[in-house]
Design a protein around this nucleic acid. Sequence first.
DNA 1: GGCTGTATGATATAACATATCAACCCCAAT
DNA 2: ATTGGGGTTGATATGTTATATCATACAGCC
Lengths: 158, 158
Amino acid sequence: MTSQAFEAHDHRSCIAEGVASAVQICAERNLQLTKARQRVLEILLSEHRAMGAYEILEVLRAEGLGSQPPVAYRALEFLTKHGFAHRIERLNAFIACTHVDNAHAPVFLICRACERVVEAEADPAQGEIDRAARQAGFVVERAVREAEGLCPACASGA
Amino acid sequence: MTSQAFEAHDHRSCIAEGVASAVQICAERNLQLTKARQRVLEILLSEHRAMGAYEILEVLRAEGLGSQPPVAYRALEFLTKHGFAHRIERLNAFIACTHVDNAHAPVFLICRACERVVEAEADPAQGEIDRAARQAGFVVERAVREAEGLCPACASGA
DNA sequence: GGCTGTATGATATAACATATCAACCCCAAT
DNA sequence: ATTGGGGTTGATATGTTATATCATACAGCC
């Protein structure tokens, strides 16, 4: 696991690197990182928490990039489909991916107090879901692994 | 793990035993298993799939047990709070618990073809979520572990 | 009776998500 | 150069899930 977790960090680089990485990957794969799509990625990268589609839409609207729900959902669909963002099922909300390069088997740690969400990677073959699926003869296509609780700072009352 | 899984079984006993078990536990714990609550549990027990709140509400409405959303949501809140049912985050829907007696650390296997959902139990301390949380110093209060894919029958084209 | 706690009833609205159809733009093949 | 197709966008409407709020009913208890 490689989460820089809940620790302090140079946040500007999160955004810059996230966008740069997406630009490069889209170029390599012939994907169109349009204005709206890139802006939504930036918006998500600007916070280490999950944002609802309508919250994102408000920003787009203020910037004249669109005002109707499909605008936000289309961009989010593109971003999640290509691994630049993830959907947090527990929250019906979205967050930028922080492991764009890796193969993807994310685990999300969601702090209910400060709302920060950290993405960790964990080998799915080692996990409980996979074990349960194998026993049942179930073919897993997508796994949701999300924990809700308290991050270190919030747990210690900081 | 003890899932009777995706196999055939005497389904009448699922309902009967599920209700009987809830009745007994509520008596022991001084919980009020009111008419609406019990009926919602029966509705959930009647199918091994997740049902949306509004789908449940339709049944209640037809039976004169209430017609407005809070009726369904209140019953579902009671049932999930006390472990008689679970929320499936991936589907924004609910399913009856099939392991009422046990300590709870469910894993759900959701077949996207036939919609059947199986609840398996798996030791959370062994899992990827717990490992990731420990590394990050995160305190887990609730874990969501859901797999979407194909059950044995649907996977084999049956 | 009056108090308290729990459960219900009723109305409204918030929040999340998708269907549909027309318009547009780019670019490649004829 | 033009035509046609794929992908994207704009715009409108609607569907689906969830909660807030305020009022009422009812049982147990002092």
